[in-house]
């Protein structure tokens, strides 16, 4: 059963990723990203990382993707259906990417085969890790978010006289 769901999710992710590579229409591009993000969240659930999946949906599909759509609406005002994005395919880059794929697979395969199956742990354990061992990175990520907020406001509002 979970194998079936896994392959369904894999097909969805594949379609989304191909749309990101091939689409001429900006909106389809963003929809492809949405498909990739949602199927990634599905994979997280399958692997036992429920909270991460919800965070992905909350932050990415509900936040970042909307930001991408906003940016598209502010920047591109083309008609849908008409190609508004240029797509250039380069066989050399394709070969390079396949090479990277083979390399990564060869490096990571032994690691993946060695390990035993468990899961992402309970929410309680996650909370203790975030507020225990990883407290400093956790607080720093809050600081980073604040810095990003200020940065975006200053970049976007800067040209208003």
């Amino acid at each position: 059963m979970s194998a079936l769901i896994f392959w369904l999710l894999a097909i969805c992710a594949g379609i989304g990723a191909l749309a990101v590579v091939m689409s001429h229409d900006v909106m389809r591009l963003a929809l492809g990203l949405g498909l990739v993000l949602l199927s990634t969240a599905g994979f997280f659930v399958l692997l036992g990382f429920g909270f991460l999946a919800l965070a992905e949906v909350f932050v990415y599909a509900g936040g970042v993707l909307v930001l991408v759509l906003f940016a598209i609406m502010l920047v591109h005002r083309g008609e849908p259906g008409q190609p508004s994005l240029e797509v250039t395919h380069d066989p050399l880059i394709l070969v390079g990417c396949v090479g990277v794929f083979a390399l990564l697979l060869a490096v990571l395969r032994p690691v993946a085969l060695q390990l035993q199956t468990s899961s992402g742990g309970s929410v309680d354990a996650l909370g203790s890790v975030l507020l225990g061992d990883l407290l400093l990175p956790f607080e720093l990520s809050g600081l980073l978010l604040l810095a990003a907020l200020v940065a975006v406001v200053s970049v976007m509002g800067g040209d208003r006289r």
């Binding site: 949405g34 949906v57 599909a61």
Partner: peptide, 9 residues
């Protein structure tokens, strides 16, 4: 809180 937020899209 998270999943209904998808309707924004």
């Amino acid at each position: 809180l998270a999943v209904p937020g998808l309707s924004v899209l």
